[in-house]
Structure formats: C-alpha cells, structure tokens
C-alpha cells in the first residue's frame, strides 16, 4: 500500500479532529478532537518515516504520544475544575470573557 494513502488518511483524520473542535459543544469531545489531530500528525510522521525509509518519524511519534499524555492530564484537570465550578462542560456556557 502506498504510504501516501496514509498521509491522505492522516489529513482526513486531522480535518475530522478539527471539525470536532469546531462543531462539538462538549468540552471533552472537543478535546478528543484535538487528540485526534495529534494522532493524525503521528500517523503522518510514521507514514513519512516509512516513505523515507528511516525511523526518525517513528521516534518522534513516541515523543508526541508522551506530550499528548501530559496534555490530557492538564486538559482534563482544567475541564474538571470548570465542571466543579459550573456543573457543566459545555464550551458555549463560559462566555463571560468577550468583546
């Protein structure tokens, strides 16, 4: 299978992730969209790594996974704090900061 297909797939995944951020009101789902975008990048990295016939890209994917994990921790922490304060995780609700 041509690795370029994986790149295309990665792009589609990236777009889906972005769409999730744009469309979903639920903070967790939106956040998952971001994670999907990161993983799309991972897929692209791995695919390119394969195309170039070296492992740099794959190593990088590990870095990204680690960082993404840290991001999840922080992100969920914030979302939980918001939930505790407001009893909701709708992204549209906290909109006092504007203008």
């Amino acid at each position: 299978m041509d690795p370029i297909n994986f790149v295309i797939l990665a792009s589609i995944l990236f777009a889906i992730g972005a769409a999730a951020v744009l469309l979903r009101r639920n903070a967790i789902i939106a956040f998952m969209g971001v994670e999907l975008m990161l993983n799309a990048a991972n897929l692209a990295l791995v695919a390119f790594s394969r195309m170039h016939g070296e492992i740099d890209g794959q190593i990088m994917a590990f870095f990204v996974l680690t960082v993404a994990a840290a991001e999840v921790v922080v992100g969920l922490g914030i979302i939980i704090a918001v939930f505790r304060a407001r009893q909701t995780i709708s992204l549209d609700e906290p909109a006092e900061l504007k203008g």
């Binding site: 951020v21 744009l22 469309l23 009101r25 939106a30 992204l91 900061l97 203008g99």
Partner: peptide, 17 residues
C-alpha cells in the same frame, strides 16, 4: 470588530481555521 470576540471558544477556533 470587538463583536468578533464573542466569547465562544469554538468561534475563535473557527477564526483560526
């Protein structure tokens, strides 16, 4: 212009995209 800063995080993301 300040109306574009409507407080909705999703519209911010949309602007970026």
């Amino acid at each position: 212009t300040r109306k574009t800063q409507n407080g909705q995080v999703r519209s911010y993301a949309l602007t970026m995209v």
